Amino acid sequence: MTPGFGLVVRFTLRDAAAAVGFDELVSQTLEEIRRHEAGTVVYINHRVPDEPRLRIFYELYESRAAFDAHERQPHVRHFLAEREKYVDKVEVTFLELADGKL
């Protein structure tokens, strides 16, 4: 299956304590994504070496409809509300498939 929709999200966290809380929130959310979201092909949280306040998500979905379904999930709605305690800045880049290998 070729993913049809993707995005990269860059989170700048408030401080080291916020990073711990954010990572815990992400881990809890990922458990539910794995369990309930067949249309979510890739959902990865990256740390950045030498930038402890930075997290980068890489997300791929079967389609835009699968992404929209992801956004409506209770665990995602909870994540979106709770992340505000930890995050200073969010930058989202939507991706369009040009070419690749899976």
Rank of each mutant, 00 (worst) to 15 (best):
T2K: 10
G4T: 09
G4Q: 07
F5R: 08
F5H: 03
F5V: 05
G6T: 00
G6R: 04
G6Y: 12
V8K: 03
V8A: 06
V9A: 07
V9P: 00
F11Q: 00
F11C: 01
T12D: 05
L13S: 02
R14S: 04
A16V: 14
A17R: 14
A17T: 14
A18F: 06
A18W: 12
G21E: 05
G21K: 09
F22S: 04
E24S: 06
E24H: 05
E24C: 03
V26F: 13
V26N: 00
V26I: 14
S27C: 12
S27M: 13
Q28K: 15
Q28W: 11
T29N: 05
E31T: 09
E32M: 07
E32R: 10
I33A: 01
I33P: 00
I33D: 01
R35M: 07
E37D: 06
A38I: 03
A38Y: 08
G39V: 01
T40L: 02
V42D: 05
V42I: 10
I44C: 00
I44S: 00
N45H: 07
N45C: 15
R47G: 02
R47D: 12
R47T: 15
D50P: 02
E51M: 15
E51N: 08
R53E: 10
R55L: 08
I56M: 09
Y58N: 00
L60F: 13
Y61G: 01
E62T: 06
E62R: 03
S63T: 07
R64H: 12
R64W: 13
A65F: 10
A65P: 02
A66I: 09
D68Q: 03
H70P: 00
H70D: 04
H70R: 06
R72P: 00
R72S: 11
R72V: 15
Q73M: 11
Q73P: 05
P74R: 08
P74Y: 05
P74A: 04
H75N: 10
H75F: 09
V76F: 02
R77K: 15
R77T: 07
F79V: 12
L80M: 15
A81I: 13
A81P: 01
A81R: 14
E82A: 08
R83V: 11
E84L: 15
K85Y: 09
Y86R: 03
V87N: 02
D88V: 11
D88A: 10
D88Q: 10
K89Y: 13
K89W: 14
T93F: 15
F94G: 00
L95K: 02
E96H: 05
E96C: 05
A98K: 12
A98Y: 13
A98C: 09
G100E: 14
G100Q: 08
K101A: 06
K101W: 13
L102E: 08
L102C: 02
L102N: 11
L102S: 08
